[in-house]
């Protein structure tokens, strides 16, 4: 590649400026603000604030409800990650058998990726509508009277299902392209070496899919933790009573509904640490990501 030299030493910085400004305005500044206000007790009516040190953090950890939300977030994240990956894997393996590298199919499947998440989210929420949702009706016929937004477990179940449903297309596309990247002759060699298709999958196909899998694992955990806000909000119809919520939702709830800006900021600082740890793990994995050639 040809190396381009700028006339002025200032030019590259000017070119970088818009991006840096966006990072500063939309990330660094709010983050700094959150860290700052996590040390203050904000007057609910906006008449100034008092420095309280680590009290906000102490309050967060002392709150028994916080533990409950942490537990639910853990279960929720595990279920969403596990099921959305597992179901997408099954679908991708089936699709891989059919399409055999035909690019027409691949383009079609890309549409799933482009269109599905928002639409799928809406459809999923509709399915669980308390009054007209077919899933609710189906379970009712089976003797389970779901009470979304009222019963803790029913609501949690609906959240997991909608979040999984929404994430499957993304996982599907990545896993499918991962499968297509596995050398055909290696799979043929395995077909000769291993009589059992099931065993062949777990000993050859699955390990060769591992790099894609690690990558998706982090993506999915991040998704379940943070990007499911909308799904939860719609299902709870912004009126969470004794309902399951995730950590991110609690930040919003305490800060904007409960007007406890200090406590809410402390919680977001904790989440920032979680994101930081996930990011470090992800970079480590990508660095060490096994490159088979």
């Amino acid at each position: 590649m040809k190396k381009v030299q700028f006339d002025s030493r200032l030019t590259p910085y000017i070119l970088l400026l818009p991006q840096l400004a966006i990072v500063a305005i939309f990330f660094l500044w709010p983050a700094a603000e959150a860290v700052r206000s996590s040390f203050y007790l904000e007057d609910p009516f906006g008449f100034g604030s008092t420095f309280v040190g680590l009290d906000n953090f102490k309050d967060v950890f002392a709150d028994s409800n916080y533990g409950r939300v942490v537990r639910f977030t853990g279960v929720f994240t595990f279920c969403v990650t596990f099921f959305s990956l597992a179901i997408a894997l099954v679908l991708a393996v089936k699709a891989d058998k059919v399409i055999h590298g035909s690019s027409a199919y691949k383009t079609l499947l890309m549409w799933v990726y482009a269109v599905a998440p928002p639409v799928a989210g809406l459809i999923g929420i509709f399915l669980f509508d308390q009054h007209v949702g077919p899933i609710v009706k189906m379970f009712k016929a089976l003797g389970w009277d779901m009470r979304i937004g009222v019963n803790y477990n029913d609501t949690g179940f609906a959240m997991v299902v909608v979040a999984v449903w929404k994430q499957i297309p993304v996982n599907f596309i990545f896993l499918l392209s991962g499968l297509q990247g596995i050398s055909k002759s290696v799979q043929e060699a395995a077909a000769i070496d291993c009589p059992s298709g099931f065993r062949r999958f777990w000993t050859v196909t699955f390990p060769l899919l591992a790099p894609t899998g690690f990558f998706l694992l982090i993506i999915n955990i991040t998704y379940a933790l943070f990007d499911t806000f909308g799904v939860i909000d719609v299902l709870l119809k912004t009126q969470p009573g004794d309902d399951p919520i995730t950590l991110v939702y609690k930040v919003y709830q305490d800060g904007f509904r409960g007007n406890d800006l200090g406590g809410s900021s402390a919680q977001s600082v904790i989440l920032m640490v979680v994101v930081f740890v996930l990011t470090v793990i992800q970079f480590r994995l990508i660095e060490r990501r096994v490159h088979y050639n």
């Binding site: 002759s185 290696v186 043929e188 060699a189 060769l208 088979y292």
Partner: peptide, 27 residues
């Protein structure tokens, strides 16, 4: 039957030992 492929088609995630042993283990 056993087949030798043009691009060798070795299992990239297995050691040479396991590449050789794989077909036997499965049987």
């Amino acid at each position: 039957i056993a087949m030798v492929f043009q691009n060798y088609a070795l299992y990239p995630h297995m050691t040479v030992y396991n590449n050789l042993a794989y077909g036997l283990k499965n049987r």
